[in-house]
């Protein structure tokens, strides 16, 4: 649906120039929700603007829905942009226009009749559940409502693609969730391909199918969201993931010799991490029953990525050394990563 081929973009600054995007190639498929994740300054916002050519790449090709956008003249490009909706962090609603007028904006002067425009705009406001706010000005709306109006406006010309530039970054977590639900609905009910730029892990975890991780203008890692989270390869991805799952906090606790990390002879602390999808078996009770072990959960962090749990548990295990070893083997066979962090098994 969207293909970027070796695109680069450099901004001439005073003295030095900024390489915002360096030789990026990406393929985004029809009907998917694709995340582009990175810390601020990584070049994500520039990259998304290369898709609808709000920024023109210095080199490379941009192909959207079979058309080479980089070859179009400005009139053709304007037409092509109508099929690529875009929403923004700051909503960018027209302050002098009501919600209804904002949604009507892309339809006016397009040959459509006034009454039809009004009807279509009302229908879109109904879709984003804001029909009662049709005559409100943006200053009278909350952040979440503004973003809903912006989404309705972006949908007005029936786009096949929706680009979201940090669309939830200015919203509180609850509102973020409701906007993400709405985006999911667009994707499933209207079949719109969605590209989401974000620095929020939560967003990628909740809605994306695939993700690209950016750092210093380059895409360093691309893949299925679950795979990226379960098995991050690049340091920047790892720091994203560990910041999100907080399993790494145990290292700090051990270092500080926190009471919960002290073990009696014969015990050990281990970290169990899910690597595979749908590990929904009752692992803890299985272990304690089959190997006669006592498992004490220190803490755990399990998140749902799409429909699969990801994360793990930190547990203190006590029992016979051979049973513990057997249990570890059992877990590894089940494709659960096991790491023994504090070991007092031999001290018995």
């Amino acid at each position: 649906m969207i293909t970027l081929e070796h695109v680069s973009k450099t901004f001439a600054g005073s003295g030095s120039s900024v390489h915002a995007v360096r030789d990026v190639s990406l393929e985004i498929h029809e009907g998917e929700i694709f995340g582009i994740m990175g810390f601020s300054g990584a070049g994500k916002s520039t990259l998304v603007r290369l898709i609808n050519l709000l920024e023109r790449p210095d080199n490379g090709r941009v192909v959207v829905d079979g058309r080479v956008l980089t070859d179009l003249n400005s009139r053709e490009l304007s037409q092509a942009r109508k099929k690529i909706g875009m929403i923004f962090q700051q909503f960018n609603l027209f302050a002098t226009r009501t919600a209804l007028q904002n949604v009507s904006f892309p339809l006016r002067y397009s040959g459509m009749r006034r009454d039809d425009i009004r009807e279509r705009a009302q229908e879109l406001l109904r879709f984003v559940e804001l029909e009662d706010k049709a005559d409100s000005y943006p200053s009278q709306l909350s952040g979440g409502q503004k973003q809903r109006v912006a989404i309705a406006r972006a949908l007005a010309s029936n786009p096949k693609i929706l680009l979201c530039d940090e669309a939830t970054s200015a919203l509180d977590p609850q509102t973020t969730t409701s906007i993400l639900h709405l985006l999911k609905r667009l994707n499933s009910e209207l079949g719109i391909t969605i590209v989401i730029i974000t620095h929020q892990m939560e967003v990628v975890k909740q809605v994306c199918n695939r993700v690209a991780v950016m750092e210093a203008g380059r895409v360093v890692e691309t893949g299925d969201v679950f795979d990226i989270f379960a098995n991050p390869q690049q340091p920047v991805t790892q720091s994203f993931v560990s910041a999100a799952t907080n399993l790494s906090r145990i290292h700090k606790l051990i270092e500080q010799d926190a009471p919960i990390t002290r073990v009696k002879p014969g015990e050990c602390i281990m970290r169990m991490k899910y690597l595979e999808r749908s590990s929904s078996e009752a692992l803890v009770s299985q272990l304690s029953r089959r190997y006669a072990l006592d498992l004490n959960i220190i803490f755990g962090s399990i998140e749902m990525i799409g429909e699969n749990p990801l994360g793990g548990l930190i547990v203190t295990v006590s029992g016979a050394p051979e049973s513990i070893n057997g249990a570890i083997q059992y877990l590894r066979d089940k494709n659960v990563e096991v790491e023994v962090l504090v070991d007092a098994r031999a001290a018995r």
Binding site: N52, L54, S74, R75, S78, Q79, A80, R81, K82, I84, G85, M86, F88, Q90, N92, F94, F105, P106, R153, A154, A156, S157, L163
Partner: peptide, 15 residues
């Protein structure tokens, strides 16, 4: 006038 509005209008195909 907020440059974001200009960007939004461009993204909607405004000339």
């Amino acid at each position: 006038v907020d440059p974001g509005l200009i960007e939004a209008a461009k993204s909607m195909g405004c000339r």
